Amino acid sequence: MFQVSTASSQLSKPAQYEELVAQARSLLADETDRIANAANFSSLVFNSLDGLNWAGFYFFDGAELVVGPFQGKPACVRIALGRGVCGTAAQTRVTQVVRDVHEFPGHIACDSASQSEIVVPLVAADGTLIGVWDVDSPLVARFDADDAKGMEALCRVFVELAWSRTAAK
């Protein structure tokens, strides 16, 4: 049975992410429902890292990004490719680390409390765009290169265990 343990603030950021990756592997290992896995993954990250006010998914429906399971206040439902931080990450397939969202051209303000953001594109092994993993913070400059590496590692686990081997439901 999986047990959530919050990442210790006494650990280095890379060590916190290593612990989270192990927890995510354990959490997703035996479940085959994509929505259940996305919901639990969102909760794990949101409740394990300090300084977050939103963590969740936008899935690509073939035309645009549509909000999926998340933790935080209600969110924008649909985002066009190339629009805002999420749409940019989806279109470019490059992780976006935004120190100050007010400096990002075309930023979509779903929650006015958000000050910084990191968005990781989710891409299947065959190159198909799945969507994006989006995390917001009420703190300016909350995310850095260590967060990018850590979030990308977490997203690889999600794509491998919660998407690639599971059935769409």
Rank of each mutant, 00 (worst) to 15 (best):
F158Y: 12
A145H: 08
A153W: 04
D146R: 11
K149P: 09
V119I: 03
G150K: 07
P138N: 14
T128P: 01
E152H: 03
A153P: 01
E117C: 10
A125Q: 13
A153I: 05
E160I: 12
D134K: 00
A125I: 02
C155P: 04
D136Q: 11
A141M: 06
A141P: 04
L139M: 14
A124N: 10
T128E: 11
V123I: 13
A125Y: 09
V140Q: 14
G131E: 01
A148R: 15
G131W: 00
A145V: 09
V132M: 01
R156S: 12
V157Y: 10
M151P: 05
V120N: 02
E152C: 09
V159H: 02
S137N: 05
I130K: 03
A145C: 05
P121Q: 11
P121E: 09
D144P: 06
R142N: 13
P121K: 09
R156C: 05
V135F: 04
A148C: 13
D134G: 00
C155T: 13
G131K: 01
L154P: 12
V157G: 07
G131S: 00
V135P: 00
I130S: 02
L122T: 07
V132Y: 01
I130Y: 00
E117A: 08
D134H: 00
V135L: 06
A148W: 07
E117S: 08
F158K: 06
L129W: 03
G150A: 09
A145Q: 11
A124L: 11
D126L: 08
P121D: 09
M151E: 11
